[in-house]
């Protein structure tokens, strides 16, 4: 499996051949979507949708119906002009992450294998498309794709992997805002009144040679999302924390009615091992500050 690498995005884990990249993504709270491309073509799409909560009346979702609907919609969108009709030529079952999944292989504009299943643990309906290229055998692809798909875990966090950096976000948080700029991405996760933020910047050594300090770097280069999530925190107030060696600014307050202590904090540090500047932030009740510590502990640089 050394020719494969893991992808962790939007509460889904999968593996794909090395060199493929996350090329498109959206959603994160009630639904999620991402696409992984090889160097030459779109290869893999993952979609999920949260089902209505238990309390509300909900009809049982049939994965095969989900697949059929998807194929119909797909052909309406892309096949209408070319007048190509979709032809499903194989149907079957598969076991994905302990769930019974259905799959269909079909030809439309290209050769596609579509899988769908319901994850009762996370209350989500999944749909995965794999776009086969001429000469590619589904049997070979299924051998690495299906065992690698993870839609739920017993762990208390979701793994994320983005451009060589892996980190864990406690369950309950959903990806709310992100800008996936190569070399300086930013992601904001929300869980009710709690917010977690992560950003990093490559070329740290070279950038710090220019700005001379992390404070100056933050003032000029920190993404605008930091300012909007951590309103009121001033970079000038960043002070070194003796224990961690990070630059920290923290502001405490109290909720209007309950009188609970709330915290807003930003932490910035230079990780010479990965030549990156990391910036993390948290806003929310003080008793959940451990979420930020867990996030920071989990950050690992995993170059390809």
């Amino acid at each position: 499996m050394e020719n494969f690498e893991k992808e962790y995005w939007l509460e889904v884990e999968l593996q794909h051949p090395k060199g493929w990249v996350l090329a498109a993504e959206s959603g994160g709270i009630l639904d999620g979507y991402f696409r992984v491309d090889s160097k030459t073509a779109a290869k893999l799409e993952v979609k999920w949708e949260k089902q209505a909560s238990e309390g509300k009346a909900r009809s049982k979702v049939q994965p095969m119906v989900v697949i059929n609907r998807f194929i119909e919609d797909y052909m309406k969108r892309t096949g209408a002009r070319s007048k190509i009709k979709a032809e499903v030529y194989e149907r079957g079952n598969a076991n994905i992450c302990e769930h019974n999944a259905y799959f269909a292989r079909w030809r439309g504009i290209g050769d596609v294998a579509t899988l769908s299943w319901v994850c009762e643990d996370e209350n989500k309906v999944f749909l995965v498309n794999y776009y086969l290229e001429p000469g590619e055998k589904w049997e070979d692809v299924a051998g690495w794709l299906i065992p690698g798909l993870v839609c739920h875990t017993s762990e208390k966090f979701w793994r994320y992997r983005l451009i060589g950096v892996e980190f864990k976000i406690p369950k309950g948080y959903a990806l709310q805002t992100r800008r996936l700029l190569l070399g300086r991405p930013v992601a904001v996760f929300k869980a009710g009144e709690k917010t977690l933020l992560i950003h990093w910047s490559t070329f740290a050594r070279e950038i710090l040679a220019k700005y001379k300090s992390l404070v100056e770097w933050a003032k000029k280069e920190a993404p605008k999302e930091v300012g909007s999530v951590m309103k009121g925190l001033k970079y000038d107030m960043l002070k070194p924390d003796e224990k961690t060696g990070k630059m920290v600014v923290e502001e405490t307050g109290r909720t209007f009615f309950g009188g609970r202590t709330t915290v807003k904090t930003l932490r910035i540090w230079h990780d010479s091992g990965s030549n990156r500047i990391f910036l993390t932030g948290y806003s929310g009740p003080r008793d959940s500050m451990t979420d930020l510590e867990e996030l920071e502990k989990s950050i690992v640089f995993k170059p390809d």
Partner: peptide
Amino acid sequence: MKQEFMLTEREAEVS
């Protein structure tokens, strides 16, 4: 570039 600046392949290629 990957070695010198600690970049991923994609980061190095795009830069």
